[in-house]
Simulated scan of single mutants.
Amino acid sequence: MKKVGLCILLSVFIVMLAACGGAGANEVSSGTSDEPIVLTMGTKMPENNVESEGVKEFMKLVEEKTDGRLKVDVYFHEQLGTESEQIENVISGAQDIYFETMTYYLPYVKDFNIHSLPFLFKDNEEYQEFLQSDIQKKMEDELIDKVGLRFINTKKNFIRGPYRVLVSTKPVEKLEDIKGLNLRLAESETAIKAWSALGANTTIIPWSETYLALKQGVVDAATSPISTVTSMNFHEVTKHVTVTYEYPQSLVMAMNESKFQSLPEDLQTALVEAANEAGEIGTKYINEETEGVLAELKEADVQVYEVDLSPWQEKMEEVYQDLVQSGFLNEEVLNDIQEWKAQQ
């Protein structure tokens, strides 16, 4: 009820402004009066989450860089709705910014599905380089043209995770170790195809039931962001962690394009600068948290493995082709990415 009520209040507020001849959702003043321009931003993460600390830095930086002429009000923990609801809010102009990963924009630009392809990028560094490529820019331009959404953190340097791992009851140090491994997965056709191709026996189990499934021996392993291994207590029932970089994730601030263009140029510049600086700070916080997780794992006698993932990536070719045949994946974009990777 809180979410619905807040959304209604926001809508009423916008209508009242328009009725009074003030600035509407996509129309603002020059920002030179005493009254600041206030942007509404939403995220699904709770306020005490490490990612949210980076968002709070963004709020502060915007106000500092604009001498208070521009402010950002952030609503945490899905107060403005679910992922899809908030994206629709931003498209309509009822909300100005939404903060999440790029996979949620797949309904508007199909090629964003490449951001969830398992083992397409060897590590975060390669993924970061790709995010500045012409291939990525083309997808972002299409998102602006089709639904009027712009990623204002242009460096896309706010990394979630910061990487994914495999937690297991026995060592996984090479591709052969995955054969016959009973693996917990979410209900994802892409992930199931990928891990099956690597030799695992996959079982769909809710995330909240994963710890118990590992403890009872229902499964031997599960995939997870490194940041949640200790908070989920996986280290109590699995003593092996393999770094996989299964699919890197970049958090983006998607803003209503009309609202962005309505801002004075100096405020646009300040907003982008603040978003990029917040991404750097947020990722720093996440990396620091990861160091703490790794220290906990060491104390719990958990072995962490950095392995050669190239044999795993080679196995993905048949998976990608299967996804092309099913219509899920654009073969032209896949070929462009493979060519780009070969040139790096």
Rank of each mutant, 00 (worst) to 15 (best):
N153K: 02
K156W: 12
K122N: 09
D145Q: 12
T154D: 13
S208D: 14
L214N: 02
L120G: 10
N153P: 06
T203S: 15
I159W: 02
D123L: 04
S133N: 06
P162I: 05
K146P: 03
K137C: 00
K174C: 11
K179V: 09
D123Y: 07
F121Y: 00
A200N: 01
Q132P: 02
A191G: 04
G199I: 02
L212A: 10
L181T: 07
E142M: 05
D141L: 05
V167C: 05
E187D: 15
Y127I: 02
I152D: 09
E129L: 12
S208V: 12
S208E: 15
K170N: 01
K179T: 11
D145T: 11
R164M: 14
Y163K: 00
T190I: 14
K179G: 04
D134Q: 04
G148I: 08
K122F: 11
Y211V: 06
I205Q: 06
L212T: 08
Q132S: 09
Y211N: 12
L149M: 15
L143N: 03
I135G: 04
M139H: 06
V218H: 00
S168I: 00
N201H: 05
E125H: 11
W207D: 07
A191Y: 08
Q132V: 00
K170M: 11
Y163H: 01
I205E: 02
K138N: 08
K146E: 10
N157R: 07
S188H: 07
M139A: 10
Q136E: 14
K170C: 08
Y127C: 07
R184S: 13
E126D: 10
W195F: 15
K193R: 13
E176I: 00
G161N: 03
G161H: 09
P162W: 09
E173M: 12
K155F: 03
M139R: 12
K146T: 09
R150N: 12
I152L: 05
D145W: 01
E126Q: 14
N157Y: 01
F151S: 09
N153M: 06
L181Y: 06
K174E: 13
A194S: 14
F151C: 13
R184L: 10
A194E: 13
E187W: 10
D134K: 10
L143T: 01
N124K: 09
G161C: 11
R164Q: 15
A197D: 03
E176D: 08
R184P: 02
L183E: 04
T169N: 12
V218M: 00
L198K: 04
T190D: 02
P162N: 11
E126N: 05
E140Q: 12
S133Y: 08
